[in-house]
Design a binder for these strands. Structure first.
Lengths: 217, 217
DNA sequence: GCATTTTTTTAGGTTTGTCTAAAAATATAT
DNA sequence: ATATATTTTTAGACAAACCTAAAAAAATGC
């Protein structure tokens, strides 16, 4: 496996995240990476030459097989470190991401695989995202958005798509965190708001908030 | 504490290592860093502007108080990661250095301090080098060469100056490793060889070997 | 279908950290 | 002390990764 710069890795990761099925476009990627469209075009040429993306001017881009493999490796590193930080160093789940952003670029394969072993081959990171194994194989997530959870069926919070300070403040105010067990008690047709049961308490969740919360069933 | 680039950190660390008492010169530093004298001059200007080194053209350079503080912080990170790799991930002690070279540049203070705590505030890395504490305080090594250890005074192996395969093979054959407790039982005048007590066993150590082993008293 | 808007690319510039080659300062040797 | 050798610095280039402003291509609206 060749060696890639931090910047290249960040582009690859961002494309992977944006690339659902179709292809990714310049402005979206620039926004995701907080950079300028012109910089994205520059990098796409570089990554095309390294055979990590398919790219033709004005036609958008998507990862090659090799690009996907690299993306999964970076995600593997990121999530293993997040797990380590939360589990071993007792970081809270909203602190792990930033530090893992740096650690994920340390590329020693032996380090990553030994870390994986040391952690007991965990399958999900503290946000509930699946961790790719040494071959890049990733468990299909059986998560469901809170808007889609059935009434009176318990779910465990495993993912929050928006991780802004405002969002985290609201969540902690309602006593909701990673791993919190909850159950929808009532769904109001008028505004799609939910009344849920959390830790022996009743809370109201707006549709906007619910759309950002994912639970494992 | 400000943030420094990997390159700046490597220069600071190298100056610290070369700087015994006096000052460091351009060619030596270039050799240490496997770079060119011209690059060193460029960087010294930059580090002087950042108040990390004292530097005047043609007069050599040495770390400022702030520069030394930074050097000790980088060494702290390096040695904590080395300890982690050897102790937790079961890397052999000749593999840890290279990986720690990368990890040492991850700058989160919280990460380093929590790692320190997790490891139980170790005071020496797997090579027997002392680990600076959170304030940059470093234990003055009270190491003594095995040739100078008094009779019947226990010592803990904390440093091996030669780390060749041949040396390591010999050591492991005699059941000696980092942290091994030993005691000199007899010293033979004829060839300066030693009879030592290691783990309930008696071993003979040649003068050549003894000269390469250092112990903490 | 053509004008307008949006998206993307190109052209050219900046910063960081490197390099080579040449000039300047310092050290050494007789 | 002065010629020679060594060390260090300057000058000017280059690559990576970013930027702004302008041009070109594609998408959209009527």
């Amino acid at each position: 496996m060749l060696n890639y710069s931090t910047s290249e890795e960040n582009y690859i990761k961002a494309i992977f995240h944006l690339q659902g099925e179709g292809s990714v476009n310049t402005n979206k990627l620039a926004a995701e990476l907080k950079t300028r469209p012109a910089s994205v075009t520059d990098m796409m040429k570089k990554l095309r030459d390294k055979k990590l993306v398919h790219y033709q001017a004005y036609k958008g881009f998507r990862l090659t097989t090799e690009g996907k493999k690299l993306a999964l490796l970076i995600i593997r590193r990121h999530r293993l470190w997040e797990f380590f930080l939360a589990e071993k160093l007792r970081f809270s789940w909203d602190e792990v991401h930033e530090v893992a952003e740096d650690l994920e670029h340390v590329s020693s394969k032996k380090l990553v695989d030994k870390l994986d072993e040391y952690l007991g081959f965990p399958r999900f990171d503290p946000h509930g995202d699946p961790i790719p194994d040494a071959n890049g194989k990733i468990e299909p997530t059986k998560q469901v958005c809170l808007t889609d959870l059935a009434l009176n069926k318990p779910g465990i919070v495993c993912y929050v798509s928006d991780q802004s300070t405002e969002m985290l403040e609201l969540l902690s105010h309602k006593n909701i965190g990673m791993g919190t067990r909850l159950e929808i008690k009532k769904r109001f047709q008028f505004d799609q708001s939910l009344e849920i049961r959390v830790k022996q308490q009743t809370e109201t969740i707006s549709e906007v908030l619910a759309r950002n919360i994912y639970v494992k069933i």
